[in-house]
Amino acid sequence: MSDARETILGSIRRALDRREPADVAAAAVAARLTNPKANVIPERGRSQGTDALERFVFEAERVNATTERVADLASVPERVRAYLQAANLPAVVKVAPDPDLAAIPWDREPLLQIATGKADDHDAVSLTGSFAGVAESGTLVLLSGPESPTTLNFLPDYHVAILFVDRIVGSYEDTWARLRARAGAGVMPRVVNWITGPSRTADIEQTLLLGAHGPRRLHIILVDGASSSAETS
């Protein structure tokens, strides 16, 4: 294996005509890596506050997600029950074991069957939190971890995502900055998922169809109020 590595690196260095220890190049590369800089951020990615919220909703709906806005986590059980009812689904939800969602008072909807954990094939509906929402394209950002199993984002037919309004940012770059601030530079969760609308394909005669392998529907519940798990309603 190391032979192949040396062979390939040798070919690259010959092709690049690197004659001496490439200190200058190495310094430039190191600088770029230690201090990642944003390149071009389009105007669309520069919105903030209410503008960002409006942009997020507009863009998410444009790519076939549905959204609704509630005042606090206390309203979530009733909204989820209503959503499932409208979609004619059984009142069963697999919920991410996310501390941010712990304050949801599920007991207010006794008919809802709530289980927490990762998703299995038979789970029809998942409910997760979101690390951020990117206004630029109506994209949800989810990070994997014990509190946020990745399967919840892909296996169920219906994905309901909770997004605290104060987590909506203008651009993708804003989410990298938040991530570095939280975890440290160069440290990544195992998976960062950007999700922009429900799953789709156009592989049969270029006909756009939703729900190819991932969720057929993506419903985003925007929650006002504080997003910290410490502050419960």
């Binding site: 630029e136 994209t139 195992r190 998976v191 998922n193 950007w194 999700i195 922009t196 609308g197």
Partner: peptide, 14 residues
Amino acid sequence: QDLSVYTTFTTGPR
């Protein structure tokens, strides 16, 4: 599309 539906950054195993 502005973005494909799923853009995933994976960093190592479980």
